[in-house]
Amino acid sequence: MSDSNTTHFSNPSTFILLGVPGLEASHVWISIPFCTMYTIAILGNFTILFTVKTDPSLHGPMYYFLCMLAITDLVVSTSIMPKMLAIYWFNSREINFSSCLIQLYFIHCFSVMESGIFVAMAFDRYVAICHPLRHSTILTNPVVTNIGLAMMLCSGLLALPFPLLVRQWPYCRTNIIPLSYCAHIAVVKLACADTRISSYYGLFLVFCVIGLDVLFIALSYTQILRAIFSIPTKDARLKTFGTCISHLCSILAFYIPNFFFSLMYRFGQNVPLHFHVLIANIYLLMPPMLNPIIYGVRTKQIRDRLHRLFTHKRT
């Protein structure tokens, strides 16, 4: 390791991203599944946006929130994937310090925003099932717009301490990050200062902010299930519950890898490093890939619109 990596510097000019440590010879092969996931995410989420935009019957709260989710997924995946592919394909490992902070900010900002969107979607399902006659008066277009703006503001402010704290730490150990992108906890570990405030804030965000989101979603679905079980006929119960399946699948695809990665990175010291890195990549790329597939398969209105679109093109 060069002297520049071990001497004291307050803000390094660049960080070095290793990709998948120990598996450098297989980087090209490792890139194939991740590139495939990213391609599916791009095509799927743009298809969702195009479908909702071109079909007036889909201009409602549920689909507006779905568009917000698609945009968030596109930003999260695009914030990491180009640099990741540059590492895997061209061995381009350097990333500017400011670029690293921007990437770090976007990852956390839009991850928090995605969690908030799932809460908004749970609220939409709650109103649609528990108060169907009031749905159109409660979730009006201005209300949906205000919810979206509030989520953007809150997530932007909540993610802001991450790059601000990282920028103030002195770095005297190394500028090598054993990941494919600039994750907050990985950058903080390189600092030679008391970084407990960063660790505490990261835990606060995971367990308090995102934990509260999970609690609100759980409370919404408790009320939803009570309303569903009060429906007299089995077919009607299954049909009503079927409107929630897509949302529940997307929630599981987002929160389970999120909590698993957060806990593993902080407490899984005995887990091999390359496994850490692969899980870190999957946890950011899996939801953007799965969400459009889940909603495209499970939502009848989207399926019907896509069917009409492709059959019209063929004729």
Rank of each mutant, 00 (worst) to 15 (best):
H312D: 10
C130M: 03
M152S: 11
T7Y: 08
L284T: 06
I210F: 03
A218E: 09
F34C: 06
R173G: 11
C35S: 15
D213E: 15
A150H: 05
S98Y: 12
M286P: 00
H27F: 14
I210G: 00
T299M: 09
S180N: 08
E94I: 03
T299I: 15
I185L: 12
A186K: 00
I117A: 09
F267T: 09
F254Y: 14
L49H: 06
F216D: 03
E114D: 10
C100W: 06
H108C: 11
L225I: 15
P292V: 10
D3V: 09
C67I: 02
C192K: 13
H59K: 08
L263F: 14
S250E: 01
I80D: 00
L284N: 02
H274D: 07
A218K: 02
F229E: 00
F15A: 05
C182K: 02
L104Y: 01
S79E: 07
F216E: 08
I80W: 01
S4P: 00
S111Q: 07
I217K: 14
P232K: 10
L278A: 06
A86Y: 04
T140L: 06
C208D: 02
E24D: 13
C172T: 15
F261E: 02
A120F: 11
P142E: 09
Y88C: 04
F15C: 07
L158N: 03
V188N: 09
I80G: 01
S180D: 08
L104W: 03
F241A: 15
R173K: 14
K189T: 12
I217D: 01
C249D: 08
T233S: 15
P12I: 11
R134N: 11
D304W: 02
R237W: 06
I42P: 01
L153K: 04
F207I: 04
I177P: 04
I251Y: 13
G19T: 11
I147T: 14
F229G: 00
C182Y: 02
L306F: 05
I224W: 07
A159R: 01
Y221T: 10
I210Y: 01
L23T: 07
A253D: 05
S99T: 08
L309S: 09
D124T: 04
S98L: 11
Y181G: 03
F106A: 13
L263R: 04
A128L: 12
R167W: 13
S136D: 15
R226H: 13
F15E: 12
N291L: 07
A236P: 00
E24T: 04
H27I: 10
Y181V: 03
